[in-house]
Design a protein around this nucleic acid. Sequence first.
RNA 1: GCCCGAGUGGCGGAACUGGUAUACGCGCACGACUUAAAAUCGUGUCUCGUAAGGGAUGUGGGUUCGACCCCCACCUCGGGCACCA
Length: 998
Amino acid sequence: MKNYDHKKIEKKWQKEWSDKKIYKTLDAGKGKKMYVLDMFPYPSGVGLHVGHPRGYIGSDVYARMKRMEGYNILHPMGYDAFGLPAEQYALEHKIHPRKAVEENVKTFERQLSIIGLSYDWSRKVNTTDPKYYKWTQWIFLEIYNSWYDNKKNKARKIDELVSIFEKSGNVKVNAACSNDIKIFNVKDWKSYSKKEKQDILMKYRLAFEGYSEVNWCPHMGTVLANDEIVIDAKGNSVSERGGYPVEKKSMRQWFMRITAYADRLLFGLDGLEWSSHIKEIQKNWIGKSEGSELEFKIKNRDLSIKVFTTRADTLFGATYVVLAPEHSLVSQLKSNISNWKEVEKYIKNLRDKTDEDRTSNDKEKTGVELKGIKAINPANGEEVPVWIADYVLATYGTGAVMAVPAHDERDFDFAKKYNLPIKRVVELKFKNKEGDGAIRKDLPFVRRNAICAIVRNPKNDKYLCISWKNHLMHGLVTGGIEDDEDPIEAALREIKEETGYKNVILVKDPKFALQSQFYHRIKKENRWARFQYFFFDLIDEEQDLVDEKEVIMHDVIWKNKDEISFTVIEGQFTHNFINNPDYIYIDDGILHFSGQFDDMESEEARKKITEFVGGKIVTRYRMRDAIFARQRYWGEPIPLKHDKDGIITDLKLKNLPLELPNVKSYESVGTGESPLAGVKSWVKEGYETNTMPGWAGSSWYFLRYMDPVNKKEFASKKAIDYWNEVDMYVGGAEHATGHLLYSRFWNNFLYDMGYVSFKEPFKRMKNIGMVLATDGRKMSKRWGNVINPDDIVSNYGADTLRVYEMFMGPFEQSLPWSTESIIGSRRFIDKVDRLRDKITKEKSSDILEKVLHKTIKKVTEDIEDFAMNTAISSMMMLVNEMEKSTSINVKDFKMFLQILAPFAPHITEEIWNKLGEKQSIHKSSWPKWDKKKIIDDTITIAVQVNGKVRTTISIPKDMEEEKIKEIVFQNKDIITWVHDKEIKRFIYVKGRIINIVV
RNA sequence: GCCCGAGUGGCGGAACUGGUAUACGCGCACGACUUAAAAUCGUGUCUCGUAAGGGAUGUGGGUUCGACCCCCACCUCGGGCACCA
């Protein structure tokens, strides 16, 4: 198998490159800069599998090409090493997490070093290094000491907010803040104690203290993440390990007010060259929705319920109000609630359930009415009941909703279960725009009330239809309601008049109507009809005679459900309606039973009704503020101090870093608090015992690489301005809603503060697909299907691994590893090596030159697009062409080596060197393709007859259509196909195809 | 349930902006070299048909001179969200 000794040459060149520091980044280059960044890894204890380096190889290929193109490249690597896995690994192996990280980093670097990646290792960062996390802590304090001004749409220093309070209280302040802010004036502010002031400011800070529910496992004495919990056979939440009961516990946390940036994070996506897929995920995650905030007054109390709705147009159909069980109003209303015990029990029960339990979709909704409480529907003054229910979330909107069961599925389910009234106020509006029923623009509308009778024969399950003789259509029985006539009477009358059937019985009044605008073909007018639907069953087949006038126009027929193809309204809709008469209408439509808003369309009604009841239009986001605390040891300490009176002070820069104390035991203390709460010296100083979450260090590391050893700043302004944003970011798509949002948030913040000059940190991004095992599953120790890159490098060489990983398939796609296919990549490199025998000083053949220059173009463009697989396949074709040639010009061959060099840096360097080059191939300049050499003078194009290829012809590329026509019609194949048929069309698309239509 | 993305030979995949579908690689078959094997090289390899020719890009329709590509409906798989009012 071995044609060349990859072990020898790879080692040799890796040493050479490292000794000569050929990948060293210049602090400020004269030329253009290019920042190519990999998402830095979490160095785990198990080592790498063959999928891990795939992204690194891709970014390396890109960086190498750009380096050869003359860019000053920043291409660094580092480690994100705080967090649970390292802590867990340390606990299991009974070593300190720092030690564990050191070991894992070593393994990681050994495995990476043999692949030949062009990192500048001198810029390595490690989030667990106090010299690094000093600045993570500093950024935290910057965020802590800031608030978000919604008017200026940027973050500002908290001191400026204090000045505003001192001058004018908080009346004029429009800030992103917690939603339980009280209004105060200057006098109030001055009267507040230090602690009170602190508490108020806390509600404005961008990093703030608060409480949240966590999953608490008393037996283990720890907090568990959602995925560490399972549901046992009895339906209780238990820990995955050990099966111990888990309950909810409210715990003190730190938060980051990322929601302040929701809109900027949303619109910032527009300018980014990311895959639309990732942008879509972020958009959904942010979850912007426009709606109205409306108030329902509570009867006999000076309180009201604020609800958020996107469907203010359905307000007249709101038949009850639901509060989240956690809603603060519940306890405020206690004295008025006559069934308080029941309510209390319900809330208590709910607390023991996990979120997952409570919100799983298939679970039936539950709730309790707050008896003795009535809310007033602001639209019509109706008194409606108030409930608490598990399907309303405290954390979204206002924690309360108006329930409109006729137009919302959840409310509908709930109303059905508890027998609450359902009131339809929006109807489907159908405008007939096609056919001879299409609305005539020149005619006014004539309004009619009408019925649509769905008559079923229970004996054979067929439906009564009218077949119109003139129009070849059939539909259900429809007709107008006379003045003062009862709709059901009208329906019975129409059935009798049109079909003669007189013994039918009403089986269902779905209380549904549909508005339809159409042109009445017989009456010759534009109609705007409101059809009320009724279901009837036929009792017997006795018929009266039908009036002669009706008989002329239509027949009476019986049809199966599926055959009902047409009504005056719309066949498909009616068909669905018959199948599901409990149909709740959730789309926009036209209003009725809504007072002065009747006949208005939903969109307009939303604004008008909101205005009418004194509500306001608001924007809400699904995204929540991010918890910025973990109750663990292995994380950055939060640089804050609490004194005995509850006053918090922030550490100053000169006191940073606040280092993690070295302790013997960093196991959980058993109260749910961080292990730091058990460290006496730490607690005595009053230091915060929570540590930062895993995403803290990774939210700004890309800035530190720009100036990695700076002791005075997180990075100098000069370095930041020179490197600017990351030009190419490569990593997994799994960070779409975590890291990629948090780091955009931090960067936007740092921009507001003037520390960085760009809003968005990652201009272009490519997401590496996963490498699956040969069995199509994820590679995992558990399945025993892990392929280790060390083995591949040892058997085939690093160049083969690199070429294969790029050749496997599209960069962003997940692909299974193939132990069989890799040999193809090795053969390719062997062939390249063997081509050395053919190198001469003679000129290469014209054909070879042409293929070479085309390949240079293709590879250059493909690498730019990360289409690595097609770049390699085009080089394979070039090599096949070279094999056919008797000789290859040395200069041509060197150009080929250069374009192959990013993929196979070792073998190309070896041959390059053997050909007498002194300087590294990786420092040479990227070859340019010769435009003249890739132009084809004659082209081969296909000739189709009626769209089928019949032959191909070779013609000079600029030949005129008339001449081509002549040649084509002299062609034997074409003559046989065309014969003496008439030529209807002759289509010539320049340089592409000829199609003859006969 | 809702929102994205994808379905092409035995396998991984290619196909520019709607213009010769199956490039490149793996595998397989046959042949050359060899005492032999490996390695290497050559030839073939979607499918039906002796051929002429026909049929194939998940399924069914549509638009077009022409569709893997655009439109509609459906099926399957992957991802995201999941009572967000």
